[in-house]
Design a protein around this nucleic acid. Structure first.
Lengths: 133, 133
DNA sequence: ACGAGTTTGACAATCATTCTCACCAGGGCA
DNA sequence: TGCCCTGGTGAGAATGATTGTCAAACTCGT
């Protein structure tokens, strides 16, 4: 049962297409309201969750526990390098990391091993904005 | 200025020593109250945060966004393999992962690259508890 | 033991997220 | 095209972890 295509769902999807950064549900809700799309906060959450379940978007958690969402180019498993300052995100894949995780897990007798690998740093643009250290 | 040694601080520290699993602030608070140590929830949070700042304990976030704490044997940087079912945690180090993260970051022009690497799976004990697949 | 400065703890406040439930709209069908 | 059923929506309440507040209690150097 594919979800119905509603104005709200389309708006959320489009908002995600528009940016290459991770955005929180709150941020998306705000910018949607700002751009005239009447939409409820609960709907934004619901839609994001459905998109995430369907693998349409990637979810990760910021340091302060907020969930952020991003429409990713590749649907296969991959990781991110996110700028702490501006939020710009780069998709990366970890050749070897996957295998490493599986190997470690097996060595400890664990099955169904999943892994979370995220990198964060300060991107070149933000660094030069404040001047070199 | 080393923090003062109070009954509450000692109780929290001891509670952490007692277990090898990650525990939430709420759980710790509850078990401290249960074992007769009168302590406020706010104090548990404060103490855990201070311990975490001082590198005394490791913090990570569960899938539902709750912070969990654990007293770790090694103080150097390391990662964890946590059982999804029973919460048992194994400390692991990632030879190569650190370097890999730094290399990826540099290649994208990022500085001060930090990385988060956590593994989760089902440990052997839990697996046999329900029988093999 | 004394006093200054921390720490505590009950409770309120915050904040993201989820729940509720009456109302509304998408879309298959006649 | 119009109807109706069903899933989707949204305003606001509820939840639950975490943090802020501030007077009272406690630690520790003297």
């Amino acid at each position: 049962m594919a979800p119905r295509m509603t104005r709200q769902r389309a708006a959320v999807a489009q908002a995600l297409e528009g940016s290459s950064d991770f955005r929180s549900a709150q941020q998306l809700h705000e910018s949607l309201r700002a751009s005239g799309d009447g939409i409820g906060l609960a709907t934004v959450y619901r839609t994001l969750q459905q998109l995430a379940d369907g693998g349409e978007v990637d979810v990760l958690r910021t340091a302060d526990g907020e969930s952020v969402y991003r429409r990713c180019a590749r649907r296969e498993h991959h990781h991110h390098l996110v700028c702490r300052s501006c939020g710009r995100a780069v998709e990366i894949d970890g050749p070897g990391v996957e295998e490493w995780a599986a190997r470690i897990g097996a060595a400890q007798g664990f099955a169904d091993v999943e892994h979370t690998v995220e990198l964060s740093g300060t991107c070149a643009r933000c660094r030069e904005a404040v001047g070199p250290a």
